[in-house]
Every structure is written in C-alpha cells, then in structure tokens.
Design a binder for these strands. Sequence first.
DNA 1: GCATGTGAATAGATTCACAGCG
DNA 2: CGCTGTGAATCTATTCACATGC
Lengths: 227, 227
Amino acid sequence: MSDRRIPEATVARLPLYHRALLETAESGVGTVSSQDLATRAGVNAAKVRKDLSHLGSYGTRGVGYEVDHLVHEISRELGLTQDWPVIIVGLGNLGQALANYRGFDARGFRVAALIDADEKKRGRRVAGTTVEGLDALERVVAEREIAVGIIATPAGSAQEVADLLVAAGVRSILNFAPTVVTVPDDVSLRKVDLAMELQILSFYQSRRADSSDTADRDAPVPEATGA
Amino acid sequence: MSDRRIPEATVARLPLYHRALLETAESGVGTVSSQDLATRAGVNAAKVRKDLSHLGSYGTRGVGYEVDHLVHEISRELGLTQDWPVIIVGLGNLGQALANYRGFDARGFRVAALIDADEKKRGRRVAGTTVEGLDALERVVAEREIAVGIIATPAGSAQEVADLLVAAGVRSILNFAPTVVTVPDDVSLRKVDLAMELQILSFYQSRRADSSDTADRDAPVPEATGA
DNA sequence: GCATGTGAATAGATTCACAGCG
DNA sequence: CGCTGTGAATCTATTCACATGC
C-alpha cells in the first residue's frame, strides 16, 4: 500500500469492485487479474491496481487477486462486516420504495426504523416495519442504535429532519430530498438527486442535438455518479 | 468566458445553481452575489464564479448576478427550455416511485412511456400513463420521440434493456439497476446506485468508530454525488 | 513470462489572490 | 468601494510505463 489515507475517489469505487467480485465469485472463478476486474466494474485496469494498492498488497504478481480474499479485505475496509441499522424518514413513494429495496440487506444495511410526519401513515407497516411519528425519532435512534439516516421527505422538511437526526446522534446521512442540507463537520452527508441526474443528461443530449447539424465529431460522453 | 467546453464538474453543478436560483427568485430577490449563491447551493464562492465564467460574463462587477437572467442562461445551457419525453423501464417499487416523482415535470422531463416485462403489470396505469410490454419499447420510443431512458429493472435485465433503448435511438440513459451497463460511445450514461451510496457512508462511519478510540482528530467528511 | 505495484507524467478540478470594472 | 472574472498556484485524480517478484 504505502499510506493509510484512502483517496475519496477510490473509496467511491470500492463498492463497485465489491459487487463485481461477488458476481465473479458466484460464477466460480477463484482468481482475477486487474484487467478482469476492470472489465466487470466498467473501469480501466490501471485504476483498479492503483485503487487496490491503497488497501494493501493483496495481489500476486504474474497471477492476479484471489477473489474471496479480496472480497473480504474490501468488505472490512468498507465496514460491511458489521450490521448497520438504517432509519428512513419520509414514506412517500420514494421512501416506500427504499424501504422495500432489496440489496440493502445483502450488504448489511437493515431497515430498522421508519418515520413519517403524517399522522395517517403512523402505525402502517411497510416492508415489515411499523411507521412511527417524528416524535419517536430520537428514541428509536437510541434504542435501535441507528447508524445511518435516509432522508426521503419533501425538500421543505429535509433540513429539519437532518437536524433531528444529528441531534439524535446519527453521523451518516443520505439525502434524497432535492435541497441543500447542511450538517456539522463530523457528520457524513451524501446526496442523491434524481432530477439533477436528468438535467446533467439533458445538457449532453442538447449539445448532441446542436452539434449534429455541424461538421463536429461526436460529443464527449462522461460516466457518472458517486462522490 | 474564454472557452466553449464546459468542464464536467461544472456541468454537474449547474442543476444545483439552477435550483438555488429558482428558490432565490421565489423569495423575491432580484440580484445575487457569488457568495449568496454559493451559500444557497452549498459550495464556495470561488467555485461559483469559476463555474459561471464558463458560461459567459453574466455578472456585473460590484453588484452580482441578475437572478432571472442567470436562470435563463443556465436553463438554456442545460437544455431545460425544451421538453424531454422520458421512458421508464421496470415498474417495481422504485420505477413506480420514479413515475410518480414530482420534480421531473417541473424541469421539463415528462414521463411519456412506461414499460415492464411482467405480463401482469401490462395495462395498469401508473401516474397517468399505461404500462406496456417490452415489445412496445421500440415503437413508443419512436412515436413519442423519447429522449431519455430510465432503467429501473433488476440487475439481470439492465443490459438487455439498455441495448433495446440504444437500438430504438435513445441517447441518454439513467441506470438505477445495481450493475454495470455498457453503451456505445455516442450514448450518455449515468448511474444511481442506492446500495453503493450507503456503502460509501459505511466506510466513513466505520473509520470514525475506529479512530474514536485513538487520539485522532475527526475523520474527514466528503460531500457527494453527481458525476 | 506475466500481472502486480508504483514512481513519474499528465490531466483535471479547486482554491487563491488580485487586477479590472461598474 | 465591492464583486466579478481569471491567471497562477495548489491539490487531487488518472494514466503511463516499467521495475519487481512470483
């Protein structure tokens, strides 16, 4: 490896490698080269090697990486060896879809609490968990040792919910509300903005439409998401 | 400005500025400084100025930017002045949530077609649009001049659906399926991976847990998403 | 021989700091 | 005077290319 600080861009790709390796393991392959892994993860081989070198020297020269071992090392690095209880706040269409999303469980993320401000939703069961009111937030975060908060409320409530989550002790927040949310420095915040993604696509789409009239070469097309 | 090529990182932030400016306009403010806009968008002022400088010189020294004008310029740059018909493929929980997502319409993205491979879903109406079978995909893309495809299928079907979309002429694709999808160079592809976002949070969360035992300073906490 | 691991080179993004202008 | 616009400096990430070691 060399250093103990893993670049942010590398961290953002570790889940990609993790998933690719799990698929590889399922197909019974025991060893992969950086090139194999790169193809399955949709990146290039040099990047894979550089990224993995930040974790340690887990490969064998002339051979490649042992799949099971690498999965284990990446899991450990990502903290996937433990269970992370998740709270979802806001059970509109998106919140419900997230509560039912298969693929969280598989990675150790367990939906442990559901909160909605709407009286009418209280008491309903979604994906096997009972929806509770906003007033229950602080209590359930403590009782169920919630580690990650997901905000799926309308934009107008997002900051308030974030403040409640932080006050309750949640240090990792994923925000789906289409608004800027600010948190203290010691809290991790990531956001997923659906409309924003479409707008970025729209930019390149309209560029393409423009330049198709001219003698231009094809427009550049970027990959996306993550940090 | 100077150049006509807008950096990818800048493009990814334009929707953020766009939204912040719309909110600013609603509160009746006519002019913003780069500092105002930076605060509302959750970035720093230097970045705002550099980003906007790529679009042109739309500010006034000593004063700031005229909100309405800047909204218009960014809208034009992002291609939001036109209507983009969208197709959603896969109407599980997530696909349905996306179909119902308010906030697409507002930016010119109109859900114009819904497709699901499941016979049982065919004919159902979701968010005012009738669900059709996979066999209808090519026809409706042509008939309704679909510009953007959203893949919300299980991972196993995502590549197949992407191929169908590309064959039908769709050049912009947003992939929600947790798998790598490849498309020709002249097609834009972005991805949103829900489990991946949680795993990135998990990385920083477990680091924090580790170092809280030691005398370490607080862990660094990155902002996120986008390209 | 072959694929890793890594310094060096390059490219890209962010931040600084200030000249320029309303 | 205040705030934009932008070169220069810095920081981060990607890619290259090859020595290293199984």
